[in-house]
Amino acid sequence: MRSIRWLAVIPFIALIIGPFFVNKAEPFVLGLPLLLAWIVAWILITSLIMAVIYAADPVNREDEP
C-alpha cells in the first residue's frame, strides 16, 4: 500500500494550480469568497489525505525506532 503515498501530490495541484480556476469572490461558500473557501476546503482535505496515507502506510505499523 505504499503507492497510496502518491495521494500527497493532490494538495500541491489543488493549492498551486487550483486557484487559477477559482479566482472569484462569488459565489460565497459558507460566508467565504469562493477563492478563500477553495483554499480552506483543501486544507481540510489535505489533513484527511495525510490521515489516509498515515493509516495505510505500512511503515507506521512497524515498531520502529
Binding site: 486544507i43 495525510m50 498515515y54
Partner: peptide, 11 residues
C-alpha cells in the same frame, strides 16, 4: 497554503 504543503512534504 505554504505551511499546509510544507507539512505534506514533512511526512
Amino acid at each position: 497554503c505554504y505551511g499546509t504543503l510544507a507539512y505534506v512534504l514533512s511526512y
